[in-house]
Amino acid sequence: MIRERVDVAALFADHHLGLVRLALLMVGDVGTAEDVVQEAFARTHAGRRRLRDPGRALAYVRSAVLNGCRSVLRRRSVAFRRAVPYEPPVWSAESVAMVGEDRREVLVALGGLPRRQREALVLRFYLDLSYEEIADTMGVAGSTARSTITRGLAALGRILGEES
């Protein structure tokens, strides 16, 4: 049991920054991204006894992060009250100085894709995961991961093509 606990901790120690970056790409601001990753940590830690296959632990954690991002995005989209201004996302006009206009266009286009396509593209081209790893993380079949990426790229191309 102790061994498992240490493994979870080590996992996050090794991948904390990468996971926050992944979450940042999904939710747009660092504060929320950090919260999402912390939540993923808490959930993984609480459920560590169910982590039977250490080899899948990172995929499990990535899934937890993606799930957390989805929850955040859902809450934003269905927000009932909005009393607090929030940190502008990295793809907002306010952040253009940080990443540049061309990149911002790509990020806006990415953000406009269906959730699964967006996730699959980030896992594939940001994290450079294999189709199998993407499938594992997203809980879908390898063929589905592949086709989702293909469709996502096509959609991205259409959006960016239209813009240019």
Binding site: V20, L25, L121
Partner: peptide
């Protein structure tokens, strides 16, 4: 372009805060 944009966003963070002193010690986060 996708790789470039996502990498650029990722690089806007170069480090993240640790989890927590208590947690770090509690979970042996070195």
């Amino acid at each position: 372009r996708l790789r470039d944009a996502t990498q650029a966003v990722g690089e806007t963070i170069d480090h993240v805060p640790g989890l927590t002193p208590g947690l770090a010690s509690g979970l042996a986060l070195g």
